[in-house]
Write a protein that binds this DNA or RNA. Structure first.
Lengths: 227, 227
DNA sequence: TGAGTCAATTTTGGATACATTAATGTAGCC
DNA sequence: GGCTACATTAATGTATCCAAAATTGACTCA
């Protein structure tokens, strides 16, 4: 991300600000930008070989996604959400992701179910934290994609993005050994999906997110140093 | 909005794009801009006496709020959501507004309860559609404000904004006489709030939103001409 | 008459240059 | 020594100008 040329961020839309936003978002989610880091328009403009205009628009986009904080006449910082906000987001997810899943299950095709099954086993076999984050995210987002609720999907994706740092820190903290409960829960959800039981899948996901939130509220103070 | 000078959009932040966004948003919500209307950067820049730069940034802000649709190299239009998207939003509201209310009720002070009571009676006595929209919105948003969940609050406000046109059209359609059920529901919610029963208030609000959605799905086709 | 092509016009996207604001450093004063 | 006031610096915000893309309309040809 840092050493790339202008050509590397070229994209389908052809609009520079979108390309810059995409690259920056990726950099934030993969942890290359730490929360709280100041971001200067000049530096980014130089890095991408553009003027500050598209950089400014990219930063505004990311601000609306909750990944960047802009203060007028002051500048931009990588968003640094606190534990309270993280808990708030989990409470919201606890309500909306079950909705998305319940609308998705009856519309899901066999190919998607197969892909989800593969992801569940990948998550079990994973050793690297970054891989866990990637596959876990893919599993949850794919499981709700068949709902065909674009607004809801965008919201949920946004929440996964803004809490990414917390999930990374927590995954590193508990390690692979502490994740057996996640595997069991994924297995149960997967089984409910295969039975086409939207109600069971919804309830299991609610419990899954709720348990994670309570765990976070309990152990969260340990994470403070990592963020 | 249309005949205002630059000075009229001056604001606390001092940033022109914010002032323009605020004014445009107001114009959209009050119905001065119809959904589907094309918005040209030059016209707005001239109207506000600025260059196109702050106009573009304002339009991007409004796009992220779902009030404007931007297509690269093509231009900007006032967002025109279809019935399917409207129903989707009501399904989401059905899940998250009850959460907000249940977190708000135990934290609500007496002054807020008094203001809500006043709003309920104002809604009952209202004759103009615009007044109904205003007070109904104020009531619902104020009732959840004590939850102190800023992310959730912003989401809900956004949904009220993007579905504003539908509420206006539907209110005009059914008129004052058809709104007795809304008054009854508001009364029941108010009573639950005064009893400090978060659970009852939450459930009543869920039913309130759900009933509205079902009504919309049933009668929605009539609205098509108005939008 | 109608579809397709190409030039002219309009509109948006981006670069450069300037203005404005906030932060930093320095000198003067109590 | 520390505080305030002012000058300096550095960053963001905006205006103007240019480039690129899309729309429009005229024109050609079947």
């Amino acid at each position: 991300m840092k050493s790339e040329q202008k050509a590397d961020v070229a994209e389908e839309s052809g609009v520079l600000s979108h390309a810059i936003a995409t690259d920056l978002r990726d950099g934030i989610l993969t942890g290359q930008y730490r929360p709280g880091t100041r971001v200067r328009q000049d530096e980014l403009a130089e890095r991408y070989g553009t003027s500050r205009i598209p950089v400014r628009e990219a930063l505004r986009d990311l601000e609306s996604e909750g990944l960047v904080v802009l203060i007028p006449n002051r500048g931009a910082w990588i968003a640094k959400i606190d534990m309270q906000e993280c808990v708030e987001i989990y409470k919201i997810r606890e309500r909306i992701e079950p909705l998305a899943l319940s609308e998705s299950v009856p519309r899901m095709d066999q190919e998607t179910i197969n892909m989800l099954t593969v992801l569940v086993s990948k998550i079990q076999m994973v050793t690297e934290v970054e891989d866990f984050l990637k596959y876990d995210r893919e599993f949850h987002l794919l499981s709700i994609r068949s709902a065909r609720m674009p607004t809801l999907y965008a919201m949920i994706e946004r929440f996964w993005n803004t809490t990414q740092h917390y999930r990374r820190a927590y995954s590193q903290l508990i390690g692979n050994s502490g994740q057996w409960i996640i595997h069991d829960e994924h297995g149960l959800i997967m089984e409910a999906i295969k039975r086409r039981s939207a109600a069971d899948a919804e309830e299991l996901l609610r419990i899954h997110i709720r348990r994670t939130r309570l765990q976070l509220e309990r152990d969260g103070h340990i994470l403070l140093s990592a963020l």
